[in-house]
Design a protein around this nucleic acid. Structure first.
Lengths: 207, 207
DNA sequence: TTGCTTGTTGAACGATCGTACAACAACTGG
DNA sequence: CCAGTTGTTGTACGATCGTTCAACAAGCAA
């Protein structure tokens, strides 16, 4: 019964668990306070640990931010995969699921957008973050190209079709989160589907 | 001839001129170093003045950033106005000019995007910046609605047509600046025009 | 219980942040 | 040429930044 006499002031965690805890705390701080407010002390306090742990587990605060970028991107990818898998086997349904998943939680939330904007704000200043963006963006487009091909978009039009769809979805996602009252999630989905109609219509395959 | 004996260590400027100089320096620093690197000292050095001037002319560094936001938005508006005016009287030409102007200088440049991203990163944390964004975004959409109406888009479809066009243009602009090698300005224009075709075609006016 | 391993703490460091303000000097009117 | 005005400087201040590291203690093995 001496366990309760003096409760432990902190608990040990496995390195991977603690790393994940710090990454999630970093994402929350980025969402709440932006890149400017993502200090080591703020992140550590959010995670309920001491500031020293950040440098202990990551290569400084920059390394933690980069790791958070990769982790959040992985969450987005997983959410997209789940949405596509839940859409069944119909090619058009899978395409629509992939596109409209960006407007629903956990992707289409102000918190995730704020996190993402914080990453974008680092692209200019940091080459490694820029490379990370290029890689993730290319992967997103490649997956979209596959879904578009399954819907009959010809090979020659595939690249621009994926780029324009990505641009429209990103733009809708952006404004939906920045100005939530301007239009609804349903309207965003309708606009995206209308664009897919135009893209996949066989009579207008080019451009 | 004593003027050259001791050259003045600094020059006085009219308040408005100095204010503009600081705003432009702030925009350059935001573009180069992001929101994280936009410190008073960095901005003052960029403007070639002493750090104390920032607090002297603006309500702290936050006030300078807000003023820079308004100024850069004004530049974008002017560039759009110029493009539309240069397009002549044809409604479709004016609409295309408005839309594709976002892909050319001075709008479609990594520097301006970096500045804009720095503003977005402040939307979350600061209510006045968020209000500024809403106002500017609404103004942009209102102007686009007018151009779309001139092209025969029916009243009922006007709102979503403007929103989707804005989203597509913003998304193209975003990725064009973040990953310049991915697609060209000409391709961005082609995709935008294709979207305008779909939006303005009378047989598919709704959605 | 005892000793060891090691995850964790928290103070300390120098650097940099935003801001304030007294001193200075560039320009103007006389 | 000489005040007077005031735009500008640059230092000083306290707060906060990222990072380091010796000391501490939680958990485990014996």
């Amino acid at each position: 019964m001496q366990v309760n006499a003096s409760s432990p002031s902190f608990r040990r965690a496995e390195p991977d668990a603690r790393r994940l805890s710090l990454i999630e705390a970093c994402a929350r701080v980025l969402a709440r306070a932006g890149a400017t407010g993502a200090s080591v002390r703020a992140i550590a306090q959010e995670a309920g640990v001491s500031p020293g742990l950040v440098s202990h587990y990551f290569d400084g605060v920059d390394g933690l931010v980069a790791a958070t970028y990769a982790h959040v991107d992985g969450q987005v990818s997983d959410a997209l995969d789940t949405a596509v898998a839940a859409a069944g086997d119909d090619a058009r349904a899978r395409l629509e699921a992939f596109v409209t998943a960006s407007f629903a939680a956990p992707i289409g939330t102000p918190a995730l957008l704020a996190t993402w904007i914080a990453f974008w704000s680092l692209v200019t200043a940091r080459g490694d973050i820029a490379a990370q963006h290029d890689e993730q963006y290319a992967g997103y487009r490649a997956r979209l190209e596959g879904l578009l091909a399954d819907c009959g978009v010809p090979q020659g039009a595939l690249r621009l079709a994926a780029i324009s769809t990505t641009a429209l979805v990103d733009g809708l996602w952006l404004e939906l989160c920045l100005s939530p009252g301007c239009f609804t999630v349903a309207e965003a989905g309708a606009m995206a589907r209308r664009h897919l109609d135009a893209i996949t219509s066989p009579d207008r395959g080019s451009g």
